[in-house]
Computed example of a mutant assay.
Amino acid sequence: MSDGGWSWDPTLYAGSAPFYPVGRVPYPAALAERLAEALHLDGHGRLLDVGCGPGSLTLLLAPLFAEVVGVDADADMLAEGARQARRAAVGHVTWRHLRAEELPADLAPPTVVTFAQSFHWMDRPTVAAAVRTMLAPGGALVHVGATTHEGMPTDDVLPHPRPPREAIGALVRHHLGDARRAGRSVVPASGTPGDEDDVYRAAGFRGPRHLELPARTVERTAEEIRASVYSLSRAAPHLFGADLEEFDAGLRALLDGASPDGRFSERLCGITLSLWR
């Protein structure tokens, strides 16, 4: 996110990798189905998932391609992705420890490139330009607009209590301060940038074509909510230092008080797939 006043450092998600697959709600199968239909994906071609983390999207889309490469700057995330791939018996994914800014590196031209909850952490103009030059003829870039760690405010009656997200946020601030932490630094007061359409167009992409997936209600356990907190850069375990045990005890107490049986419901916002050519 160097175009927004913050510079990446390797501690951004330090310690978060094992919490990510537990704390983030999986992308729905409908996402792969919609992309397969829109891009005529049939098990051929090559996918490049940039900022892949532990493979949440990579492994969902892997059956649609002959070759798959997941790229991430966090080695622990890639190791977790490899574990998840073995668990799912997916053997045709290559995990590469690279910053997106190092693209195209030595990678073969992809037919589809995906960014899922990752582009805002990058030097976006540099990365978009690199991806534009390496994309195979007729290929597509897919920007996945989604939030998978927590639900949105809603007046709907849900089957179980909503997680106490405001109280959790207050607990994080009590330990880490009001500024949103991000690795060794903080996110600017303006937040992470959201003008990715302008960045993609400036790099030469045409579009976007939008595919919309509806909001959904999910049931979550207390342990999943706890993991969702540690899956965030602003609450990565290393940030708490010697206070981690105290913070974790407070977090567990909040969750126990909000739902004695340990079950929660959240309404996740819809997902927007933006297709660029």
Rank of each mutant, 00 (worst) to 15 (best):
S185K: 08
L64E: 01
L35Q: 06
G194T: 10
T11Q: 10
D3H: 14
L239R: 00
D106Q: 13
P208T: 06
T133D: 15
T148R: 11
A79M: 10
F65W: 09
R184Y: 00
E80R: 15
G250A: 05
G15S: 05
L254M: 12
A249I: 04
D106C: 06
G145N: 12
D9N: 15
R184K: 13
R226L: 11
D123Q: 12
R86I: 01
M1P: 02
H40M: 05
A235V: 14
L60N: 01
F119S: 01
R46V: 09
A88D: 08
D106L: 12
G4S: 13
V90C: 14
T221Y: 04
I168Y: 00
V50Q: 08
A167Q: 14
L41G: 01
V68I: 13
F264D: 10
R181F: 04
A146G: 01
G51V: 02
L57V: 15
T114K: 10
Q84N: 10
G207T: 05
H143Q: 12
P188V: 02
P188Y: 12
D197C: 06
S231V: 00
G191Y: 13
Y13A: 01
A179T: 09
H92G: 04
P21Y: 03
S274T: 06
T58V: 08
A140F: 08
S7G: 02
R277E: 12
G191W: 10
E212Y: 09
T133L: 05
P54D: 08
H92V: 09
S274W: 04
T114M: 11
A253F: 04
P237M: 10
V144N: 07
R46F: 09
D76P: 05
R83Q: 10
E219R: 08
H92A: 05
G55S: 09
L275V: 15
F115Q: 09
S190Q: 11
P26L: 09
D178E: 15
G270S: 07
P18A: 14
L158T: 12
R206L: 13
D42C: 02
P10W: 10
D123M: 08
G191A: 07
H210G: 00
L213G: 03
E166D: 14
D197W: 09
R201S: 02
V50W: 07
G250D: 07
G139F: 14
H174T: 11
D72W: 00
G183A: 04
T11I: 01
G91S: 11
Q117G: 00
G53D: 03
H44Y: 03
G23I: 06
A179Q: 14
M152W: 07
T148H: 01
L158Q: 06
G5C: 07
G270I: 11
E196L: 14
S185Y: 01
P208L: 04
P109V: 09
V142A: 12
Q117Y: 01
